[in-house]
Design a protein around this nucleic acid. Structure first.
Length: 565
DNA sequence: GCGATCAGCT
DNA sequence: CACAGCTGATCGC
């Protein structure tokens, strides 16, 4: 779930994917895709009222998102305020303060996100630099290099910040089989079943959300049939999808839903209640597209796994894997990365993961160590702070954030400037060695071959252990994520709790009762060369400094001696 | 009666 | 757990 609050530091006059609280003051709105967790506040009465009295406030999105949104009558009041933009077509947008008439110009481009129909990323260019808001995305490795607007001539644009969908930026999702491999696995299973007889039918147990449509269109195409779904309304103006779905129940492939569909399946009935016309019972298998379920496997698995007499799980992901995200970031090399999703529950309950929650930026002789735990508590506090929802506070908060953002950036610019390194220090952060340095787990890795229809294609390991603990990789080879220090909450008690939990953990002292999904060695992050692991006292000082908004730039000596400016 | 939030479920 | 929802209960307006 996205925990993005809606605004970007660089362009606080616009709101993206959040429409409540402080976002009610935005001069323009952006919707990346039509999933409910990105539409909070979008049908709220306050926003509705604002639109009534505004001539300039618009909602920008793709044509498909507009169509999907307006297919729900609850969002009908947006109709005259939506501006659908073409993909990859930069558009100048004036952000006008209706009270003062003050104007800010930005150029916004919609980039394909591959998450669900109509999903886009927003590239915003203006006086505060170029920033990319990814929304939710699934891009394969190398895809970023094929998006023209991320480039200026032959080189990648200078991107100041990426607001990132980090849903599966977790070693458990190190590698997710490609869309094609997953589709191919499902196709094979459906083929085997349907070919048995006309009474054999498949139920695709898809969630009530957009994103499975390409599965429907591909299977529809392949098996010359239409997929039974509950409603066609939303696809009225999308012939490519519409032609492959139907509300007629007499088909061998179903993706229909019923509030009690799981119960139906146990009784070997379809959610729509369909029976064969001659009274013969249908032979049904269910296929449940899943990502997290596969992420929990510690053993090599097929992209299709049989989980019962007539039920299967099929690997399927709306979001980029760990490797895909890393590839994306290492290609773009943004100065700042703001992850939008942080699995709070995991952090508080799964001690072994704490070690992976420390990301370090190491550049030339400088280390900036940023503990993510603090950010997590900050997010918690945001929720409660927002209760007050006071304008003055917001403004001052934002000002503070901006100021500190500058500070962190200057550090990096300084670092680059001090050493005539042409390509920035990102080279060190995102080495490809972790990807290739896997001989020791080679046999476990994805074994996709050239052969498109071999059994091997389905024999994909998922997930792949990410960082071999025996490899002795330096910290500069570990993955890094910059979490800016302004993302700090001043809640002493919570910070201390977090600190104690994390500081007390060392890889050698694993808790005894590990769940299956915790048994993986994925959580080991190698230490910085020439450094010692931070002790509780070191961390306490660091956290306190961070909480106080002080700089924590460490020179050649991690944590032990924090240099305060 | 509506919206927001939460528990419970998938 | 959580992907991205759903339903139902409760509370405040």
């Amino acid at each position: 779930m996205s925990s993005f609050a809606g605004r970007m530091k660089e362009y606080p006059n616009i709101s993206l994917d959040r429409f409540d609280r402080e976002n009610l003051h935005a001069r323009a709105y952006f919707l990346s895709h039509c999933h409910k967790d990105h539409m909070k506040g979008l049908k709220g009465p306050l926003l509705k009222r604002k639109l009534k009295f505004s001539l300039t406030v618009k909602l920008y999105c793709s044509f498909v998102t507009k169509e999907l949104l307006l297919s729900n009558p609850k969002y009908g009041f947006w109709e005259d305020h939506i501006v659908a933009l073409e993909l990859e077509s930069p558009t100048q947008i004036s952000l006008i303060d209706e009270a003062s008439g003050e104007k800010e110009e930005v150029v916004v481009s919609l980039l394909p996100a591959g998450h669900c129909p109509g999903s886009v990323m927003f590239l915003v260019e203006g006086a505060q630099g170029t920033v990319l808001y990814t929304g939710d995305f699934r891009l394969a490795e190398g895809d970023a290099s094929r998006i023209d607007l991320l480039h200026s001539g032959s080189r990648v644009k200078d991107i100041r910040s990426v607001y990132l969908d980090s849903t599966f930026y977790d070693p458990r999702y190190y590698q997710i089989p490609s869309r094609e491999a997953c589709l191919s696995g499902i196709r094979g299973l459906v083929q085997d079943w349907l070919s048995k007889s006309a009474y054999h039918v498949v139920w695709l147990n898809c969630k009530a959300a957009y994103g499975y449509e390409y599965l429907f269109t591909n299977l529809g195409e392949e098996f010359h049939t239409q997929i039974h779904v509950n409603s066609l309304d939303m696809f009225k103006k999308m012939p490519e999808i519409l032609s492959h779905v139907t509300t007629e129940r007499a088909t061998q492939i179903h993706a229909c839903r019923h509030p009690k569909d799981e119960e139906f399946m146990r009784g070997t009935r379809l959610p729509c209640g369909m029976w064969a016309s001659d009274g013969t019972p249908l032979k049904i298998i269910s296929i449940k597209p899943s990502t997290i379920w596969f992420g929990e496997r510690t053993q090599k698995t097929n992209v299709i796994v049989r989980t019962g007499a007539s039920s299967y799980r099929a690997c399927f992901s709306f979001h980029s894997s760990y490797s895909e995200i890393r590839d994306f970031l290492s290609y773009l090399q943004p100065i700042n990365i703001y992850p939008s999703v942080i699995p709070i529950g995991e952090i508080l309950t799964h001690t072994p993961k704490h070690i992976s929650l420390f990301y370090a930026i190491q550049c030339n002789n400088l280390n900036v160590l940023i503990p993510i735990l603090i950010v997590i508590y900050y997010l918690d506090c945001t929720e409660s702070n927002d209760e007050e929802d006071e304008e003055d506070e917001e403004d001052s908060d934002l000002g503070k954030e901006e100021e500190e953002g500058e500070r962190v950036e200057k550090k990096r610019e300084g670092m680059e400037g001090s050493d005539s390194v042409s390509s920035p220090c990102w080279e060190e952060f995102f080495t490809t060695e972790i990807l290739t340095d896997s001989q020791n787990s080679q046999e476990q890795r994805c074994s996709l071959t050239d052969s498109q229809n071999s059994q091997e294609q389905q024999s994909t390991q998922f997930p792949v252990p990410s960082i071999p603990i025996s490899a002795g990789l330096g910290l500069n080879q570990a993955d890094t994520m910059l979490i800016q220090s302004e993302d700090i909450c001043q809640g002493d008690a919570t910070i201390e709790t977090g600190w104690k939990e994390s500081a007390s953990h060392t890889p050698q002292t694993e808790p005894v009762n590990l769940s299956e999904s915790q048994m993986s060695s994925d959580f080991e992050v190698p230490s910085t060369p020439d450094s010692h692991p931070p002790g509780p006292d070191d961390l306490l000082v660091l956290y306190r400094s961070l909480a106080a908004g002080e700089q924590v730039l460490v020179r050649n000596n991690p944590i032990g001696s924090i240099i305060k400016d």
